[in-house]
Design a protein around this nucleic acid. Structure first.
Length: 787
DNA sequence: GAGCACTGC
């Protein structure tokens, strides 16, 4: 019986012949995995091999370091659950692993899978998907070490700009979700993987949410693909229900206890009117009266953090001056994403030493949400949590998203508190009342997919072959209107035909790792003989330099870190302004981006060039890498890279190409001096950072920013004729409401037709467009009043 | 004459 069962095991055909049956000479001496049958391996078998002297994957003796690492691995809670894991993994196609930080799931589970799946014997790979690059890199490095193999040979990682794998030998690959999505575009069933592990799904990042939907679909078609979903302890019921492929069985769950210490939570008695003041006061209170241990204070943004650091330092200085020896010395370290990696490193510095027998020194890290998930600081014993963070908020009245300081969720508060218990028992001071926590804070953050512009997502799903997006099985389905809005944009860009099918152009656009508008821009650019320049501008717009989510809908945009570094202080500011003036091109901000990059590239030899010109070296380096990557995709599709030698003509052509990519981001200057966006009639002004010396009648813009008032930023002049020539049906007058903009377009049409006939007379239907929106008129009145 | 939570390809 047993042997016939073995012969029917589909995986055995992949094995070398000697593994199919018993042998009299003892082959296990040479192959520690002798007798292992894929997906039937038990915990005790794996443990035995781990204890031996011969590495089963390299067939080399283990190094001395291996055993030491193995001993520390044995302390991890996950390690003790190995038998249970193997049992569930072997018997199920999909399983869920739940465990708090410190349980060891991200490092150990993939290794267990490698032992049961034996991907290296069947030319398959195990993937472990992370939400962030840094996590993928550092986990791969750690696990390669634990398995005593070379990083990039048997265990590797795959992130944007860096593929640390050997396609012939790597069988365990850590990667970002974005990379797996990109692979799925050309391999919709992800054939090369035997098991895919999705880590940190509780974070509900856009990529993991989409991957969950895709993988659930693949699992129905590919019964040999195993899926492991890993999450911190929250909301697991939702995932268990979601991954039930058959209604009669529950998805199996492995629960692993965490290895964190208890954290005592304190609330304020009354709500705090000023959280910043309360945060500083609480930090000082801890410093004065609590036992040694570092403090982590959560605030919302760069300015607030720098401000708080200054104030805390000052208070400690005053306290020491007034009563020497009353408090110990303090270092206050700011932490947010736009800091250079070197500056971010200083959070790992030791706290300052006590002054001759005085109270001990303390380190205070003042951080954004980056310290909630992305960066872990050891040694934190006290957490100060004001209960707020900056979040993208959708304002349906004016159809714009902006960043607003808002209340965090309970899950987020729990995560923050947990940061105090990594070293030893800790304390968390919440600057809100217990009542507020229970009654007013949301259970979880809204998943990113419900708050995002979906044009890129929809294009990706179409490329993977998912046609019916409205019925696609999302964990949390986005509103159908958002999907339709994304489809409409893709239709305008000709990526999708009128029936919602992906066009060949759309398939090509999906290959570019940029937003659809930018992909379109790159593809059309050779026609305008300026693809080298558009390539540079696209790279500059696609990085963190300027945000370009504005997309579809013009419903977006918040803020973005600027390419220009603006240091505090009046004299510094003058220097920055002068530097900018020096590089600015008055034909348009897009051309300024081109000029900045070209000058950067010419001065690569000068390490101080960026700094001397008040530019972010980090951002420029990123643009350089993006440019290289995009150039590679263009070459792959034989998209010509060309330029015109006549600069004036070149600049004109660049702006014409921009119209093709950003049809929906055009604005017209009205008689009152304000600009009106064509898409949805928002009254806007040119942002003060804009370098245009005149106020042209027509402009193309990259961002819609809502700050003290609605602004458009990164703006270039365009001509009405271009809109008609390159905009096609998008600028069909029938769809425009009556007004100055329509009349101006009408004049351009007439000029083109060489007639005075009204363009809209040529069509039978009267104008039906009424989607001016309730806010259009209101906005306009406000703007008029201001004038 | 203004202002930047966090990720990812």
């Amino acid at each position: 019986m047993a042997s016939s069962k073995l012969q029917n095991n589909p995986y055995l055909s992949h094995l070398p012949p000697h593994q199919k049956g018993a042998s009299r000479s003892n082959p296990s001496a040479k192959d520690p995995l002798y007798g292992f049958i894929p997906r039937r391996v038990k915990g005790n078998q794996a443990r035995k091999v781990m204890e031996r002297d011969l590495n089963p994957f390299t067939k080399q003796p283990y190094s001395g370091r291996y055993k030491a690492l193995l001993n520390s691995r044995k302390e991890l809670p996950v390690f003790g659950r190995m038998d249970e894991f193997f049992k569930i993994f072997n018997e199920n196609q999909i399983m869920i692993v739940v465990g708090e930080t410190g349980a060891g799931k991200s490092t150990q589970i993939p290794q267990f899978v490698a032992f049961s799946d034996l991907p290296h014997t069947r030319r398959k790979m195990v993937a472990c998907v992370q939400p962030r690059r840094l996590a993928a890199m550092s986990l791969a490095t750690r696990v390669a070490d634990e398995m005593d193999v070379h990083l990039g040979e048997h265990v590797g990682y795959s992130i944007r700009f860096e593929e640390m794998i050997d396609p012939d030998t790597t069988f365990l690959k850590y990667m970002t979700g974005g990379m797996l999505l990109r692979e799925a575009q050309n391999d919709p069933t992800l054939e090369r993987y035997s098991t895919i592990i999705l880590d940190e799904v509780h974070e509900r990042s856009l990529d993991t949410d989409i991957l969950m939907g895709i993988l659930k679909g693949i699992a129905k078609k590919r019964k040999d693909l195993k899926i492991i979903v890993m999450s911190a302890t929250m909301n697991v019921t939702k995932f268990r229900k979601y991954f039930n492929l058959r209604s009669d069985e529950q998805v199996s769950l492995l629960k692993v206890p965490g290895r964190t210490h208890p954290v005592e939570v304190f609330y304020t008695q009354e709500p705090e009117p000023d959280y910043l003041e309360a945060a500083i006061r609480t930090t000082m209170m801890i410093h004065r009266s609590e036992a040694p241990g570092d403090i982590l204070l959560f605030l919302t943004g760069e300015q607030e953090i720098e401000d708080a650091c200054r104030k805390i330092k000052l208070e400690v200085k005053d306290a020491i001056k007034q009563h020497p020896g009353s408090v110990g010395p303090i270092v206050c370290i700011p932490l947010y994403s736009s800091l250079s990696p070197q500056k971010q490193q200083s959070i790992f510095d030791s706290p300052p030493v006590a002054i001759k027998g005085g109270p001990s020194g303390r380190k205070v890290v003042v951080a954004t949400n980056i310290a909630e998930t992305s960066i872990t600081i050891d040694g934190i014993v006290y957490v100060v949590d004001p209960g707020v963070s900056k979040q993208k908020v959708y304002n349906p009245q004016i159809r714009v998203e902006s960043l607003v300081v808002s209340s965090i969720s309970k899950a987020s508060a729990q995560q923050r508190a947990g940061r105090a218990g990594r070293l030893r028992p800790g304390k968390c001071f919440r600057l809100y009342t217990e009542r507020e926590f229970h009654r007013e804070m949301e259970e979880y953050d809204h998943p990113e997919i419900l708050r995002s512009n979906l044009s890129t997502t929809v294009l990706t799903l179409l490329k993977i072959g998912i046609k019916d997006l409205v019925t696609f099985d999302f964990v949390d389905p986005p509103a159908p209107e958002l999907l339709l809005r994304a489809l409409k944009l893709l239709n305008y860009l000709a990526a999708v035909d009128d029936d919602g099918n992906l066009t060949p152009l759309g398939a090509m656009m999906a290959e570019f790792p940029v937003e659809p508008q930018l992909a379109k821009l790159l593809i059309v650019s050779p026609k305008f003989r300026c693809s080298n320049e558009i390539l540079t501008i696209t790279a500059m717009m696609s990085g963190r330099l300027t945000s370009n989510d504005s997309a579809t809908t013009s419903l977006l945009i918040s803020s973005a870190p600027n390419i220009w570094i603006c240091p505090p202080g009046a004299r510094q500011r003058q220097g920055a302004d002068a530097a900018k003036k020096h590089l600015a091109v008055h034909d348009g901000d897009h051309l300024t981006l081109l000029e900045v990059y070209n000058q950067y590239y010419l001065n690569l030899h000068d390490k101080n060039w960026a700094w001397n010109n008040y530019l972010s070296a980090q951002s420029l380096k990123e643009a350089e890498m993006i440019r290289k990557q995009l150039k590679g995709v263009m070459e792959r599709f034989y998209i010509e890279l060309n330029s015109l030698s006549d600069e004036k003509k070149l600049f004109t052509n660049v702006r014409q190409a921009l119209v093709c990519g950003f049809l929906m981001q055009i604005a017209h200057k009205e008689k009152d001096g304000n600009y009106l966006t064509l898409k949805d009639n928002q009254v806007v002004a040119l942002h003060p950072s804009c370098d245009l010396i005149t106020q042209p009648e027509w402009v193309v813009y990259n961002e819609f920013v809502l700050s003290s008032r609605p602004y458009i930023r990164t703006v270039s002049e365009v001509k009405a004729e271009w809109l008609i020539e390159f905009g096609g049906k998008y600028f069909d007058l029938v769809s425009f409401p009556d007004g100055e903009t329509k009349s101006a377009l009408q004049r351009a049409w007439n000029k083109r037709m060489g007639t005075t006939e009204s363009a809209s007379d040529r069509t039978s239907k009267p104008s039906k467009r009424k989607d001016k929106g309730p806010s259009g008129g209101i906005q306009k009145k406000k703007a008029n009043r201001r004038r």
